[in-house]
Design a protein around this nucleic acid. Structure first.
Length: 605
DNA sequence: ATAGGGTTAG
């Protein structure tokens, strides 16, 4: 712990100062000078009681100073306190409103910033260029449900001629992006004549957060072409776009760029590099970044814990956590997310439970929806399906469809059709537009041979107008990304790639590969056709393309948009064995490293 | 006295 620059206020013995020098106030007896030395809310309250004794409790300057302090590092209790003080000011001006709004916009209850705005208008005060950034930021952090308010603020800013203000612009872009409308954000961006780097960062981040990495990177390119100097934040967004794409070559290129322009001195950039290398399939590079960086903070450790977890090394993730605690760093909610994720993907149910417990009891972190999600995953994967069902049902907060979906896919892998039906009802109450749910249900029915149920769910899906997301796998060869969709070529089997895949399947069959046709749910299809549908799954097409177009012995890296299918998983294991190739397959939730006929996930996924 | 852009379970 760093030694505090000043002794804590409690040691000042405030009352003595007051009684000894009530005629003249020197530095230590004036509450104003004490506030600047204040370290915590508790100390602040002591200063406040001191102010009461010196009859300064309603002094405008003292109150504003106190409010300023409370809003610097907003927590729930400090904002509550700020509001109490605020209510004591008879005629607050716009500056004070701005201070309060800024505090709320960074707190857990950003909606209060909007409520304040209503008060501003009731007071007949005019919002200024300092007002809008805080309010827009509040909207951005509330997501899609705040879009209406955000638009109203936008209109207001236009009316006052503040929409092109250099501070307002980026927050407008950020507001639209945060409220899930990145296209509106782009419209705002395009209207700016001379966008600064912060506006560029806002739009690049917006695209990255909307999972549109190509557009994010093209904005990054535009920024370079315009000779605008990027900042460390630009690098973070560019790296997160690479992570989304899973493009290791592009990631390496950006890493070089970062080194060239000296951005590698930022801890956060290094953390983003760890994340990028891990998500692009190179755990080794991620480790080397971590080992070589100085000033590792909680986020850097968390990124490394998540990296080990996604690559199937749960035990290593846990030992990283223990090491981090030894280094006296305090874990945050993301650290625990990584840790719980590690436990669920490694089947460590008891450890998962105990970390979930100490997270609250020892570190005072309130579990969020994502932590609950990890717990559901933990129980579900381990086959404790009914326990998982009860867990979701008894949550203190409203479960999202994603939570139920986690359980649904576990029902699928554990072949529990009855529970799956119950779970699907719970999902459909909340959201019935997700194609994957119907696919899981009809697959389960198909495996149980209940073809009439298969038809039922497929009809339900059609009636509700739900479309299935096609499986898509991509592979990068010589800086070009090749995409393959499931079923590509089922009706026009002619290309060299398909012929190669046909040959490959023959070879695989000789070493014991049996196509798992129960996964194909077309009950009316004859055997031959079923096998062909399965054969042209996107992952098999991409791996075959990799075998043909990369040097022997090199690693094949494939990225898939959905979870890997069981049949492709067993095929990939055999391919790694007979062609002596390492295959790194990233699916929507984790990595599979196929080597010597085995997978790093230990078939637990 | 007040203002902008950043990693996150399935």
């Amino acid at each position: 712990m760093a030694s505090t620059p000043f002794p804590p206020i409690s040691q000042f013995s405030l009352s003595n100062h007051y009684t000894n020098s009530n005629t003249q106030r020197n530095d230590t007896t004036n509450p104003l000078s004490l506030i600047s030395k204040c370290n915590s809310l508790r100390e602040l309250k002591q200063i406040q009681s001191f102010a009461i004794k010196t009859h300064l409790q309603n002094d405008h300057t003292v109150l504003t100073k106190l409010i300023n302090f409370c809003t610097q590092n907003p927590t729930t209790s400090s904002m509550e306190h700020a509001h109490l003080l605020f209510d004591r000011i008879p005629e607050p001006d716009i500056v004070l409103f701005n201070t309060m709004a800024r505090g709320y916009s960074r707190s857990k209850t950003p909606i209060h910033a909007i409520f304040l705005f209503v008060e501003v208008l009731n007071y007949g005060l005019l919002p200024d260029d300092y007002t809008f950034p805080s309010l827009l930021k509040a909207c951005a952090s509330m997501g899609a449900k705040a879009l209406q308010e955000g638009k109203q603020l936008h209109c207001f800013a236009i009316k006052l001629g503040l929409n092109y203000n250099v501070y307002v612009c980026p927050t407008l872009i950020n507001m639209y992006a945060g409220c899930n409308d990145v296209d509106a954000a782009k419209l705002v961006f395009d209207k700016i004549l001379d966008p600064c780097v912060v506006s560029y960062n806002a739009i690049i981040t917006g695209y990255a957060r909307s999972s549109r990495p190509n557009e994010a990177l093209s904005m990054f390119r535009e920024l370079q072409e315009r000779h605008i100097k990027p900042t460390d934040v630009t690098m973070l967004s560019a790296l997160s776009s690479c992570s989304l794409l899973g493009s290791l070559d592009l990631g390496k290129w950006i890493h070089e760029y970062i080194k060239k322009y000296g951005f590698d001195k930022y801890v956060k950039v290094n953390t983003a590099l760890i994340d990028m290398y891990a998500k692009c399939g190179s755990l080794d590079y991620a480790i080397s970044i971590f080992d070589n960086m100085s000033g590792r903070d909680t986020q850097a450790w968390s990124a490394m814990i998540v990296a080990y977890a996604t690559h199937g090394q749960g035990h290593k993730a846990i030992s990283m956590f223990e090491e981090m605690i030894k280094e006296r760093l305090s874990p945050d909610e993301i650290t625990f997310l990584g840790l719980l994720y590690a436990c669920s993907h490694t089947g460590l149910v008891d450890e998962g439970y105990s970390y979930f417990y100490i997270m609250r009891e020892k570190y005072g972190i309130v579990p969020g929806i994502k932590h609950y999600g990890c717990m559901v995953d933990l129980l579900s994967r381990a086959g404790r399906l009914n326990e998982a069902y009860r867990f979701i049902d008894e949550l203190p907060i409203k479960p999202t469809p994603i939570l139920w979906r986690t359980l649904l896919s576990a029902c699928s892998s554990h072949g529990n059709l009855e529970l799956a039906k119950q779970v699907s009802e719970r999902i459909f109450e909340l959201d019935d537009s997700h194609g994957g749910d119907y696919v899981i249900l009809s697959n389960l029915c198909a495996r149980a041979g209940r073809w009439e149920d298969v038809d039922f769910f497929r009809k339900l899906m059609r009636d509700r107008g739900v479309v299935k997301i096609p499986g898509c796998s991509s592979i990068e060869v010589n800086n070009v990304v090749h995409e393959f969709f499931s079923g590509d070529g089922v009706n026009s089997i002619s290309s060299d790639l398909h012929k190669a895949l046909d040959e490959l399947v023959k070879e695989l069959k000789m070493v014991g590969y049996k196509p798992d046709i129960s996964l194909v749910h077309h009950g009316d299809m004859e055997y031959e056709k079923k096998e062909i549908t399965l054969r042209y799954h996107s992952e098999k097409l991409a791996i075959t393309f990799g075998l043909l177009n990369t040097p022997p012995g090199s690693t094949i890296r494939v990225v898939k948009n959905l979870r890997v299918c069981g049949d492709c998983h067993s095929a990939a294991k055999l391919i790694s064995l007979i062609f002596d190739r390492e295959i790194v397959l990233r699916d929507v939730q984790r990595f599979h490293h196929f080597k010597d006929g085995k997978c790093s996930c230990g078939d637990f996924w």
